[in-house]
Simulated assay, not measured.
Amino acid sequence: MAERPGVRRWFQDKPGRPHHDLSKATRARAIALGAVEVSSCELVEALKRANK
């Protein structure tokens, strides 16, 4: 997903909290291309489910 809107270069591989730093325009472009906004709580829950 990060390839299409060109956001891979903003990936921050922080231990325990990987994320992308996006400008408002890049975030809007990513959403227009199908990215889904989630809260940090939703992300943590999804990561917990994925690691079961």
Results as ranks from 00 to 15, higher is better:
Met1Lys: 07
Ala2Asp: 15
Ala2Pro: 07
Glu3Ile: 15
Glu3Met: 09
Pro5Glu: 02
Pro5His: 05
Val7Trp: 11
Val7Phe: 10
Val7Leu: 13
Arg8Pro: 01
Arg9Trp: 12
Arg9Tyr: 06
Trp10Tyr: 11
Trp10Ala: 12
Trp10Glu: 10
Phe11Asp: 04
Phe11Pro: 03
Gln12Phe: 03
Gln12Asp: 10
Asp13Tyr: 04
Asp13Glu: 12
Asp13Cys: 09
Gly16Gln: 08
Gly16Met: 05
Gly16Trp: 13
Arg17Gln: 13
Arg17Leu: 13
Arg17Pro: 00
Pro18Trp: 05
His19Arg: 11
His20Ser: 10
His20Thr: 10
Asp21Cys: 09
Leu22Phe: 03
Leu22Gly: 02
Ser23Trp: 00
Ser23Asp: 11
Ser23Phe: 02
Lys24His: 01
Lys24Tyr: 05
Lys24Ile: 08
Lys24Asn: 01
Ala25Pro: 00
Ala25His: 02
Ala25Cys: 00
Thr26Lys: 09
Arg27Lys: 13
Arg27Thr: 00
Ala28Ile: 01
Ala28Phe: 00
Arg29His: 07
Arg29Leu: 12
Arg29Lys: 14
Ile31Pro: 03
Ile31Tyr: 02
Ile31Thr: 01
Ile31Leu: 15
Ala32Pro: 02
Leu33Trp: 05
Gly34Cys: 08
Gly34Ser: 06
Ala35Met: 08
Ala35Thr: 03
Val36Asn: 02
Glu37Val: 15
Glu37Gly: 02
Glu37Ser: 06
Val38Gly: 06
Val38Phe: 07
Val38Asp: 11
Ser39Phe: 04
Ser39Asp: 07
Ser40Ala: 12
Ser40Arg: 13
Cys41Phe: 06
Cys41Trp: 10
Cys41Glu: 12
Glu42Ser: 09
Glu42Met: 07
Glu42Trp: 04
Leu43His: 14
Leu43Gln: 06
Leu43Trp: 14
Val44Arg: 11
Val44Gln: 07
Glu45Ser: 13
Glu45Thr: 12
Glu45Asp: 06
Ala46Glu: 04
Ala46Thr: 09
Leu47Cys: 08
Leu47Ile: 15
Lys48Phe: 11
Lys48Asp: 14
Lys48Met: 09
Asn51Leu: 12
Asn51Lys: 14
Lys52His: 07
